[in-house]
Design a protein around this nucleic acid. Structure first.
Length: 630
RNA sequence: GGCUCCGUAGUUCAACUGGAUAGAAUGGCAGAUUCCGGUUCUGUUGGUUGGGGGUUCGAAUCCCUCCGGAGUCACCA
């Protein structure tokens, strides 16, 4: 049963208005919102826009409507008018009944439920996960939970980037320097081991690049083919001529890139990629082995983070898929071919550029692959929404992907949505792998758990717990702190990750909410007998704080639904913090066990119970576990 | 340079998508416990919402302009 008051109040207002003014009033003319804390009332009708129907000034209009509403429905006990705002007050009995029927539930009506795919995580298999991936994973998982809570049918999907030149790099470095090292021989987590060789490759590469640069500077062009020679010479000349330093910088980095490409190591990497694409047995064997190490590592990290997937896609399976579709697009005349054979789409009428979809040698690029997987998934999953959790540096890419598919006539493309999130910065600035400031996901998880443990042990409240229970608790607290810290920020916004603040326990933090929950559980345990007492309005006084708490609980379903529409776990984090804070204040002022009026005590206990349930539910939606004690 | 996004207390974030006197946390300061768990609660301090103009009953939010920052403009992914 949905008791949400907007369900009956909005239509009631509409009817009242229509009979009052004898005009048709569209529903969206009725702007109803929660009454702000500082005013009396439960719901507020904004009356400025209604003047045109009443022909009177907003305050007079509000007054009139208020009077009519009180007459129209007994649930409405009163009202007050401030400027053009009509604050509607509901009966206390309405709220007491509401509390008794309340359970945190945000299910939409059947007809509003949809099939939704959430793609998230999508890692490369050449490096372990880092802080940026953590934001991605937490967001993706949480959004999926939120949509499920609203009744949607969600597929969580991970598209793994397991092929390409970057993967070959770690393979080559391992061949050269690995001496057969494996995760078990080294005791290293598989993804970290592979990552180590990726870094190793980079080191070897920059040594070769420097060497080659020195040779070029002394006019020694051995090992560089004529065409590349010319290119490099031209660049050198341009750098000579360039006047502003920005341009010089740009040219220099292009030059470095070109020299990079001429090193023996890069040549080897490219050769390996070709071997891989041809299906060379040894290459494939090595690739499979090293990838399997990485997957073992990733799975462990996912498990510790508490995220999971319904389906995995691998780029090695999907990277060719888009080619046929591009051919179809050519046939339809949506795409065009240049003289060199490359295929493009012109999106300039959409405010975008031309975009390459197929190289002149016929091989596919990132976009080709994404087009292919999109079509494949639509066949397999048949969703109405395809949401991709990917960083905002790819805003342009997803814009192009969606428009391209639309132009090709795929109607499912309308459902493509990019959940674009901002970078995670450190207090010192951006994470840079070159400077070694990248925060590793596994290290971070270890740290927050350890730190949570340290702080809990200092307080000494967990001494009687078994070591196993303690470890479970520290894990819940550490991860709760981390998840809340990251998810409370609006996904779209860039955020600063301060390692020390992320494990804080006071203020707007995960553990603050967990503490509130644990304390409620303790209260429920001690007050079991009260649950038998029937709550009756006749036996207890009206309390505005209680009314306020129930209104906070009532906001649950609307909050979750708005969060789902906006793909924003942050809204839920803000809500549950507000709820916990208000409850703590209520708890402080209105005792249960000491209250002599047992009906009132039972009523307060009921508020505690429902608040606890709601906090736990919100926590679940963020992937946060609530401890029974801490 | 073109396009996109961002700029809110010292700091980290809010502001129900155009609503009421811009709120929390943190930091600083001052308090509360015969306690149902003090990881709590109550005060206090702190703002020209980057600057300027416009739209209207009303703007942090929408439009224009300038300033500052980021991202992106690959036959990379």
């Amino acid at each position: 049963m949905n008791l949400n008051k907007e369900i009956w109040l909005t239509p009631l207002i509409q009817e009242t208005l229509e009979s009052l003014y004898n005009k048709t009033i569209p529903q969206d003319a009725i702007s109803l919102q929660k009454t702000r804390k500082e005013f009396a009332g439960d719901s507020t009708l904004v009356c400025f826009g209604l003047s045109k129907y009443s022909g009177k000034k907003p305050p007079e209009t509000a007054q009139e409507i208020g009077e009519a509403l009180v007459k129209a429905d007994s649930r409405i006990s009163g009202f007050n008018v401030v400027n053009g705002f009509l604050n509607i007050e509901l009966n206390y009995s309405y709220w007491v009944n509401y509390l008794q029927g309340y359970t945190p539930d945000a299910k939409l009506p059947e007809k509003a439920r949809r099939r939704v795919m959430i793609e998230y995580s999508s890692p490369n298999t050449n490096k372990p996960l880092h802080l940026g991936h953590i934001r991605n994973n937490l967001l993706g998982f949480s959004v999926a939970e939120i949509l499920s809570e609203c009744g949607h049918f969600v597929s969580k999907v991970n598209l793994i980037n397991d092929r390409g030149i970057h993967i070959c790099k770690s393979m080559i470095a391992w061949q050269k320097k690995g001496n057969g090292e494996t995760p078990s021989s080294s005791g290293m987590k598989g993804d970290h081991l592979v990552g180590k060789y990726y870094v190793e490759f980079d080191k070897m590469l920059s040594a070769e690049t420097n060497e080659l640069r020195a040779k070029i500077d002394s006019n020694d062009w051995q090992g560089i083919d004529n065409e590349s020679q010319e290119g490099i010479k031209k660049l050198l000349a341009e750098i000579e001529k360039a006047e502003d330093s920005q341009k010089q910088k740009d040219l220099n980095s292009t030059l470095k890139q070109q020299i990079n490409n001429q090193t023996p190591l890069m040549k080897e990497a490219r050769e390996m990629l070709m071997l891989w694409e041809r299906g060379d047995t040894d290459t494939i064997e090595l690739w499979k082995t090293m990838n399997s190490w990485v997957y073992e590592g990733f799975n462990l990290t996912y498990k510790r983070l508490g995220v999971d997937f319904d389906k995995f896609y691998y780029e090695s399976d999907t990277y060719i898929l888009g080619k046929d579709i591009v051919q179809e697009g050519l046939a339809k005349g949506v795409l065009y071919k240049k003289d060199d054979g490359s295929v493009w789409i012109d999106l300039s009428d959409e405010g975008l550029d031309q975009k390459l979809l197929l190289r002149s040698d016929g091989t596919s690029v990132y976009m080709t692959q994404d087009i292919g997987t999109a079509v494949l998934r639509n066949k397999e999953l048949n969703c109405s929404t395809y949401a991709y959790v990917v960083g905002n540096e790819q805003d342009y890419h997803f814009n192009v992907l969606k428009k391209t598919l639309q132009k090709m006539g795929y109607s499912f493309a309308d459902g493509i949505y990019h959940i674009s999130y901002g970078m995670v910065d450190l207090p010192s600035g951006r994470m840079k792998s070159r400077e070694g400031t990248v925060v590793d996901a596994d290290d971070l998880i270890d740290e927050v758990i350890e730190e949570a443990g340290n702080r809990a042990l200092e307080l000494g409240k967990t001494e009687d717990m078994s070591e196993d229970d303690q470890n479970q608790l520290f894990r819940k607290l550490g991860l709760g702190a981390l998840k809340y810290y990251i998810l409370k920020v609006d996904p779209k916004k860039r955020m600063v990750f301060n390692p020390e603040e992320s494990i804080d326990l006071q203020g707007n933090t995960g553990p603050f909410i967990q503490y509130t929950y644990a304390r409620i559980q303790s209260l429920l345990n001690k007050a079991k007998a009260l649950s038998q007492i029937e709550i009756s309005l006749d036996e207890m006084p009206e309390e505005s704080s209680a009314r306020y708490m129930i209104r906070m609980l009532e906001a649950y379903s609307e909050t979750i639904q708005t969060a789902a529409e906006g793909y924003s776990p942050a809204m839920i984090a803000n809500y549950m913090y507000e709820l916990a804070k208000d409850y703590n204040s209520y708890y402080h002022d209105y005792p249960v066990l000491k209250e002599e009026n047992l009906t009132l005590a039972a009523f307060r206990l009921e508020i505690a119970r429902k608040t606890g349930e709601t906090l736990a539910k919100c926590g679940k939606l963020l992937g946060m576990e609530m401890p029974e004690r801490m």
